[in-house]
Nucleic acid binder design. Structure first.
Ligand SMILES: [Mn+2]
Ligand SMILES: [Mn+2]
Ligand SMILES: [Zn+2]
Ligand SMILES: [Zn+2]
Lengths: 143, 143
DNA sequence: CTAAAAATGAAAATGAGTATCAAAAGCAGG
DNA sequence: CCTGCTTTTGATACTCATTTTCATTTTTAG
């Protein structure tokens, strides 16, 4: 699966005429080895630990490339930091976000997705993307 | 209804031991007279037009009080500016956001809300709030 | 009225993200 | 492998919304 994603990125890079660099390889390796919902800063620190000499700017730039290539998704929660998560082709999910311990539970609900389509249709609206975030306390954080 | 909201804020202020100031009164008046989804900067400019000598910091601080008091809701779209909208007691709605013209269509869907409750229950999660934003193009912006 | 506490606002600080640009690295053709 | 051209990088400067600071003003209880 990791190989699969690397191939996806290489195909994307080739189609865009992007050059192959040590930095992008490093960042992709670290990203693929990382758990979901990483902030740019977190990823930057991990990359730096693995290989000296990768700048923050490059991490920012490269994550945007991953999004363009379709292997990452940008997530904006309420903590002022952009996070990135893995995306499997065609997969989609939404989030339960615990404000107590910052943990995230993922879920999928086909009915909600369908209802969104209906709502959009009713308003002549063409959906490009959506986000559904439910904030509250996870079972461990409830008193 | 405006009186109702002012009363709500006064009750809140009293319960919190907040002092009554000209600035907060001004900001509340302007906010209540304003259309939905105002950015802080927009509100600040309107307030300044009405009464000299209200600082930005106070507008920022006061809007947070309105949220605490339950008469405003914070909205974070993807334009880097925090916006505030009116909240009627017990009312809730979500948003279709046009990325073409930045217009916002509001909608309510009871079934989606119920499904969220079910999902949360299934995970032992206690919902405090949620946001559902659908991004795309409104009927006028579709080509 | 008066003293203590809260509120204000100008200005400085913060912090995530972006732009700049000189230097380094990748690449295609010879 | 050179060579020359283009892309990429990264240190640094910058942007811009929001927050903090703190001296001064305002509110309020007594
Ligand atoms: Mn996720
Ligand atoms: Mn709204
Ligand atoms: Zn939790
Ligand atoms: Zn539009």
């Amino acid at each position: 699966m990791i190989q699969e994603k690397k191939r996806t990125f290489n195909v994307f890079a080739a189609s865009k005429g992007l050059r192959s660099t040590r930095q992008r390889d490093n960042i992709l390796d670290v990203f693929l080895a990382t758990h979901q919902h990483v902030s740019v800063e977190e990823l930057y620190l991990k990359v730096k630990a693995v290989s000296q000499g990768v700048g923050q700017a490059t991490v920012y730039r490269t994550l945007k490339l991953f999004v363009e290539a379709g292997l990452a998704r940008e997530i904006l929660l309420h903590d002022g930091q952009t996070r990135y998560e893995h995306v499997l082709a065609g997969e989609h999910h939404d989030h339960l976000v615990c404000t107590g311990c910052n943990s995230i539970i993922e879920f999928e609900n086909e009915t909600i997705e369908q209802l969104q389509d209906e709502i959009a249709a009713r308003h002549g609206f063409m959906i490009r993307s959506h986000k559904l975030e439910i904030y509250g306390l996870c079972s461990r954080c409830r008193t």
